[in-house]
Design a protein around this nucleic acid. Structure first.
Length: 580
RNA sequence: GGUCCGGUAGUGUAGCGGUUAGCAUAUCUGCCUGUCACGCAGAAGGUCGCGGGUUCAAAUCCCGUCCGGACCGCCA
């Protein structure tokens, strides 16, 4: 390699030296007699000047955008009148230019990449990834990997890989299946997470484990969800919840310090699941801004406004002054999240106008003092059963954030949400199910509630790590007592036989001397998305899939030929046409 | 499975019943010795996603469909 430096490494010390650079032509400014080339590599961009009497001129004249070039020349100060500050005070006067490779005209202009539609960017991802923004994101990701590895290694964690081809289990997300050629008619599943394996590593005595684990879930996608994604997976033995949380706080603070030079204040604030839902309408509240709900159920109980009088819960949130159009939009959001409507009031002096104002004469003074809504401001109400009311108003709260930029400014807010319920009643299937996963330990004081009508009150030793309204991690203390595990399976309707059929190997292991243990998994892509200030997880993944799970560049998934199918013993069902 | 938004030269967009389908940029050619989103002049480039319908006439209106995006359901 003839390269003497990466472009971004050039500095005053290289002045008057001959350098050899290799990279891509970022831009060409051909003044006729004089040619300027911007040469780009992953570290930066530098201007190259090619003079007409130079031996390099003929070759430089061939260069076009995205050509790969090698340039030799003297790195020197620009003429005084041409200096622009910093490294732009310098340029390279080319003595030799070599085209290393020509390039077809790019499918889109790289420096306009942020306004090019995403499917074009994904189709030509190798071009998109040349853009400095994308290079920065992937380098940020690499630094974060190095940071967690360094930290966890120093803390005595052992990196262990777990299988990608494993066993399908009926619970949780839909599995991706892989047919087994050697065992026709049987299938592996790709792991939704290494949950059982990491617990087995604790049983095996590894004490502290971590892995950057690829995980697979065959569910519909979102801006923050990919079918294959990366978890930073960790598990620790002989710990209680407090130990896990404390270590995680130091780890995350360390990553932010290493990667972004940002100091996160420790400890992270904590709120219970109930508090998060009750005040912010989300189990992953965005706490960069307040706009907490105020409970006014009592004010309206039995009062004139029918919709509120009999509601289980009436919550109100103070908002800035809103136009009718904005209120309509927020009502649409509320309805999409299960509310029947979105009642509103506008503060006018010490009273209210608009919306439901004719119903609130008696409550006006109390509404003012409880909410402290500003003059001209709007009050937004959701009523119904508690869960529905807070969820709908929570969605409105986020819509207000986006409407008014309430969380703008590139700040980070991390918190813990704890004390999740152990069990959740599934209305559709009329049965109890776990909220986190079936291996989560209940709070020891609540174990006696299993099997009683109060089992919905059992608190789990589970915790979520929340950053700017995204769940970037979740974990729990695990059940290490087979008797408790049995109670848990019974509570979610697994007979001992069913439990054994699905998890027999694990239950056997649990009885083989299991240390108390617990852990957490970070949604690594999501964390990086927030750290990078990106709107989508796809911005921090080199080769992501679109929201239909398709790789638009490689064109996956795709049909395979009959011989391949026959070999793995799979037949494709005739596609059923929908409609008539 | 559902809701909403979008699809017009390579890219980004305007046009929303009758236009030679406009603009910017990229591309190509010519001119140009201090540009830095270089400039100037010119050229080429379009199955207005696809199919059907309404109409004298459809990029434009209607229906269907495909594709892209956001969200709900779903995602322990």
């Amino acid at each position: 390699m003839k390269r003497t430096a990466m472009i971004g490494q050039l500095n005053e010390k290289h002045a008057e030296q001959t350098v050899t650079l290799q990279g891509w032509v970022n831009r060409r400014r051909d003044l006729g007699g004089l040619i300027f080339i911007e040469l780009r590599d992953r570290s930066g961009v530098v201007q190259v000047q090619v003079e007409p009497d130079s031996a390099a001129f003929a070759e430089a004249d061939k260069l076009r955008g995205e050509y790969v070039a090698e340039i030799e020349g003297v790195y020197q100060m620009r003429p005084e009148s041409q200096r622009k500050g910093g490294m732009a005070d310098f340029e390279v006067i080319a003595s030799r230019v070599k085209v290393l490779n020509a390039a077809k005209t790019p499918a889109f202009e790289l420096d306009k990449g942020d306004s090019v539609s995403e499917d074009i960017r994904l189709k030509f991802r190798y071009l998109d990834l040349r853009r400095p923004e994308m290079q920065r994101n992937l380098m940020l990701r690499s630094k974060a990997v190095a940071s967690v590895t360094r930290f966890l290694d120093a803390e005595g964690f052992i990196a262990v890989e777990t299988p990608m081809l494993t066993k399908s289990t009926p619970e949780g997300a839909r599995d991706f299946l892989v047919p087994s050629r050697l065992n026709p008619g049987e299938f592996y599943a790709l792991p939704q997470s290494p949950q059982l394996f990491k617990q087995l590593l604790m049983i095996a005595g590894f004490d502290r484990y971590y892995q950057l684990a690829r995980c697979f879930r065959d569910e519909d996608l979102r801006a923050d969800r990919q079918p294959d994604f990366t978890q930073l997976d960790m598990e620790l033995s002989f710990v209680e919840q407090e130990d896990v949380l404390e270590l995680q706080e130091r780890l995350l603070a360390s990553v932010f310090r290493d990667v972004l030079d940002v100091e996160l204040p420790l400890p992270f604030p904590r709120l219970s699941y109930f508090e998060a839902m009750d005040k912010y309408g989300s189990d992953k509240p965005d706490l960069r801004f307040n706009s907490a709900f105020v409970d006014v159920t009592d004010l309206f109980a039995g009062a004139a406004f029918q919709a509120f009088a009999s509601a289980g819960s009436v919550k109100v949130m103070a908002a800035p002054e809103l136009t009718r159009k904005q209120i309509d939009e927020l009502e649409r959001v509320a309805k999409q999240h299960g509310a029947k409507g979105l009642a509103w009031l506008k503060r006018d002096g010490d009273g209210f106008t608009g919306g439901i104002s004719k119903f609130v004469g008696d409550q006006a003074a109390e509404l003012l003092s409880r909410t402290g809504v500003a003059a001209g401001g709007t009050l937004l109400f959701a009523a119904g059963d508690w869960q529905k009311a807070v969820t709908a108003l929570g969605a409105v709260r986020l819509a207000l954030r986006d409407l008014f930029g309430l969380a703008a400014g590139g700040q980070f807010h991390v918190s813990w949400v704890t004390e999740f319920p152990q069990l959740e009643y599934d209305e559709d299937n009329a049965r109890w199910t776990y909220m986190h996963h079936p291996f989560t330990a209940p709070h020891p004081d609540d174990i006696h509630l299993f099997g009683t009508e109060r089992q919905g009150e059992i608190r789990a030793q589970a915790y979520d790590l929340v950053l700017n309204g995204f769940e970037i991690g979740g974990g729990s203390i695990r059940i290490h007592d087979p008797a408790v595990q049995e109670k848990m399976f019974a509570a979610i309707g697994f007979t001992p036989e069913e439990a054994h059929a699905q998890f027999g190997f694990f239950l056997d292991a649990l009885a083989a001397g299991t240390p108390p243990h617990g852990g957490i998994a970070w949604g690594f892509d999501r964390l990086l998305m927030v750290m990078a200030g990106a709107q989508s997880i796809r911005e921090v993944i080199a080769f992501p899939k679109n929201n239909r799970g398709a790789d638009l560049m490689a064109l996956a998934p795709a049909a395979v030929d009959a011989a391949q199918l026959a070999e793995v013993g799979v037949q494709v069902a005739a596609r059923v046409e929908s409609g008539s």
